[in-house]
Write a protein that binds this DNA or RNA. Structure first.
Lengths: 222, 222
DNA sequence: GTATTATTAGAGTATATACTCTAGGCAGTC
DNA sequence: GACTGCCTAGAGTATATACTCTAATAATAC
């Protein structure tokens, strides 16, 4: 593997594990057993590494959220979208953690991320539309659909932060993909009241599959 | 005003403006025109300042979310809760921005914040319960109510990050309390399907008051 | 083989950051 | 007026961090 690629992979790994703020370029070089000079031969600065990682993340999610226009959606499609999005969140989980700082330090990233968000929101809205076409949920006025899509986005992008901060374990790193996917349970909760009678039961079963196992982080009230 | 108190106020101000990560103890001292030594006479370290600020934040929100047990809730109560919570978020807006890092660097804060989250979730759930008692929303099973409460929490705590990252303006600081309160619109969106016929119209009017003015940040799809 | 280009090592640097240390001022009190 | 306790100044420090520079090595082209 090329050094450049190795740098990206290692950076992602370290960022995910320890948080971008806690990972220096020297750490990355040390982790790869290469010299700092070598790292800076391949990347002008830390921001550039992060930007490259973002481009990969963006590509992945755009790929997942490519909604077929020639056919209607099935429940399997919905499951795929949800699973994929949370897989993506997991693989690039450092990103949302320090998002604001990252966008403040790189105007390029800020612009791209803003457009990325808008694409995601449009995709979510489109999924809702096609779900109502498919008779899974009741049709909703445009305005409501777009507000709902935004809520879905907020729940998805904030679910990990919630887990990490509300988690009972004291070790911050102890977070699994399984727990992350309980976010799907939360997203499906948003859709419950809009389900058609024809699909209600099947979606509720789907949702049940992601129910947090006890002790659930949200339930335990002190 | 005592120096100690001035340090807390100035720190909060600077943290909110520039983000905790971009504000050093030296900045704080300089901003107050006191010496670093003086600052460290009053606080052992930066974490201690942040912890004190959190205690104030916690106290404020706990005060806002003190649900009266001897009477039922009105729409005015609901409005008050929503307005207050977003006021609180605004006043301590630096906090959620760097939350994960802050909790990782201070176990005391991690523990307290976890309990704080649980209290908030319990309060939201209680508000839902009392709203159904008051005939504002239809009663829901415990399980659904708790999942909904969590979604409300996720939307509330992530709304500001969304604004800051999806905002069209390039200046990161250009965010107003008014925009922040459009989060109320999003929260009320969550409740729409559960409204009773008796209250539906009034709540929809309330929601309308917080509708984002065009160009709305979420709507403009690229 | 030789010239050229791409890659790498590793020491080094300017700056920043959290925090320390010592000396001293000032207000009250006897 | 000197003692005491609280507060403050400001120079200083150890460490970290992002990044640079030079020289050497490996790969490739001719």
């Amino acid at each position: 593997m090329k050094t450049r690629e190795k740098i990206i992979l290692s950076s992602l790994e370290l960022f995910n594990e320890r948080g971008e703020r806690n990972v220096t370029t020297n750490h990355i070089a040390a982790h790869l057993a290469i010299s700092p000079g070598n790292l800076y031969y391949h990347f002008r600065n830390k921001s550039d590494i992060i930007y490259e990682i973002f481009l990969e993340y963006e590509k992945l999610v755009d790929y997942y959220l490519d909604i077929p226009q020639d056919r209607s959606l099935t429940l399997e499609d919905l499951t795929f979208y949800l699973e994929s999005v949370f897989d993506g969140l997991w693989s690039y989980r450092f990103f949302h953690r320090d998002l604001e700082y990252l966008l403040d330090s790189d105007p390029r990233l800020r612009k791209d991320y803003r457009e990325f968000t808008n694409r995601c929101l449009a995709a979510i809205s489109q999924i809702f539309e096609k779900m109502s076409e498919a008779g899974i949920i009741e049709p909703q006025p445009e305005e409501l659909r777009s507000a709902m899509s935004l809520n879905v986005w907020l729940v998805i992008t904030n679910w990990m932060a919630f887990l990490k901060t509300a988690h009972a374990a004291d070790e911050p790193a102890s977070l699994s993909l399984t727990e992350l996917k309980q976010g799907i349970y939360q997203v499906l909760t948003l859709e419950i009241p809009y389900l058609t009678p024809a699909y209600r039961e099947r979606v509720m079963e789907l949702r049940e599959r992601y129910r947090p196992s006890l002790p659930e982080p949200s339930g335990a009230v002190v």
